[in-house]
Design a protein around this nucleic acid. Structure first.
Lengths: 302, 302
DNA sequence: CATCGCGTTGCGTCGAGAGCAACGCCTAGT
DNA sequence: ACTAGGCGTTGCTCTCGACGCAACGCGATG
């Protein structure tokens, strides 16, 4: 009867997420034909095609994307309602999923979760790392409650609960000739052996752009997706790298390396955001965590 | 299975609205037992009582009110989605329901709807009058899309799309001794025979409060819920009244009566609001109407 | 004390929706 | 060129969840 029934939307969300009716059916423990029929009927009633079928699966059409947003929002609201009613007072669904860039790892753990787990021992966390775009996608599509991203453009689909400017800094070994300096030029940095994050992280493009503007060549000796590796690279004295201050804060504190300002305005303007899905009313647990992290993490100090 | 199924929420909304399972069942063309059972099952699953039963019907509990908001919001979002998909492109559901204080009647009609019906002939309107609180309730509970209210306190459940200060003015006959004045004191007004709106309209309390602050007695000769009657009262030269300027604009233009500023700060601070339900994404039709009225109606000119 | 309207419960019935199996289609690998 | 595997879809069957009907208990009201 109703083409936008709750159960239909649940199935729909699974299909959109999996990109395949069969896989969604498997995850939901039903037979694919059941879902296929529901989708077909909904399309007939709405007079709109929701998925484009291919031999590899299905992908959302434009109209389908609208329905997906609706389904996601409904799911959020439902969770919020159950939270309000106290349906989760037993502690279930007190799971907060955080998606974050790898650079936030130590800041998140030492300044955020360490105390948070003591103050609210009933909370459970799922923490996943991802590049900036993937991270944003996870928040938007409901795979994560909170996203913490560096150098990201906010869209209509996300809302920022905390932000601060976190310049991209130069990370140099403690015995580097640059180590005593207060700030360095981009040219001086690029004259050193260099390790950098891979393309997915945006930082790479940021530096690449700045270098191009000055007509400087970007010679990367080591390229990796691991920030831990970058830090070890610098600590070992092999060469320099670029990271925001908070990513290297603990090593800098121990004197293992030195963090320098770079005289390059485009690298000063970089923002960090703590984001949640737009228009979502946050369950108490998520709100608690978001507020706590916003206040405590170094990445959101001005 | 699902205690918050779409169909359940539809029934739930009807019950909450009607205050009676039987009446809701009748309106939905189902048998009362069906609904009664659904509610009982939902309460069992949620572990919360949603309605308090009495021999006269049912009323929402606190938890029930949360569910009602959820149901209302879901309904809004669903309508919005269908609107976006173009499901209503045939023109159905292009009905915009406006709840307004009676004082806005001529302004609404002459400066708003007159042109609007020409520009968008496919739009249909349902316009209902109500006192300030009732009006707000209708917007919140989804019985109206747009509310236009005078002297209202905005709450969390409503959002204001347009507002302006509209002082409460003195309305006097054209041959009144006060008619030539630019402004008058409250005392001078209250010395005249007086007709006023009844309590439900808030204007009464506003004047009563101002009078009390100055130690003036409020002697009301005629008390009515009809603004048209107030206007005729003044036009006929019987006495004076209090109304915002826009309510008497057309009569003042024709010279049938005179509108005067009152030297009383509390009467200057009164606001008009064009409000919609908070957190609601407006269908195109509603948005069109809201924008149009905000721009054209005298009540929202500064 | 009778009556009326309310929500609720027991029981029989029906149909929406799920499972099963077969089909057609496209892709990719041999 | 062909085959094998994965995909969405369709015809059929069956089941069980939801509805209608009727009777019940309860409180208010006159």
């Amino acid at each position: 009867m109703d083409p936008l029934d709750t159960r239909f939307l649940r199935d729909f969300l699974a299909v959109a997420h999996e990109g395949s009716i069969r896989r969604a059916a498997e995850r939901l423990n039903v037979v694919p034909s059941a879902i296929s029929r529901k989708i077909a009927e909904a399309e007939a009633r709405l007079g709109v095609i929701l998925f484009e079928r291919s031999s590899k699966g299905v992908i959302l059409t434009e109209a389908g994307e609208l329905v997906r947003e609706h389904a996601q929002h409904l799911h959020d609201e439902r969770t919020y309602l159950l939270d309000q009613i106290g349906h989760y007072s037993d502690g279930s669904s007190q799971i907060v999923r955080i998606a974050t860039g790898e650079g936030f790892t130590s800041d998140l753990m030492e300044n955020g979760l360490l105390e948070l787990t003591h103050v609210h021992p009933h909370l459970r966390f799922i923490i996943e790392h991802a590049g900036t775009e993937e991270l944003q996608r996870r928040v938007i599509e409901g795979e994560a409650d909170i996203g913490i991203a560096y150098n990201t453009l906010m869209t209509e689909a996300t809302r920022s609960l905390a932000q601060s400017r976190q310049p991209l800094c130069g990370i140099v070994p403690r015995d580097s000739p640059l180590a005593g300096r207060k700030s360095v030029s981009l040219a001086e940095m690029l004259a050193q052996p260099l390790a950098m994050l891979s393309q997915a992280y945006g930082i790479r493009n940021l530096v690449g752009q700045a270098a191009a503007d000055r007509g400087l060549a970007l010679r990367v000796q080591v390229e990796t997706a691991s920030i831990a590796l970058l830090l070890r690279y610098v600590c070992a004295g092999v060469g320099v790298s670029f990271l925001p201050r908070f990513s290297a804060a603990s090593q800098a504190e121990r004197g293992d390396l030195v963090v320098l300002e770079i005289e390059e305005s485009s690298l000063q303007q970089v923002n960090t955001h703590l984001m949640v899905r737009a228009r979502r009313r946050l369950p108490k647990s998520v709100e608690t965590v978001a507020n706590f992290l916003s206040e405590r993490m170094v990445a959101f100090r001005d």
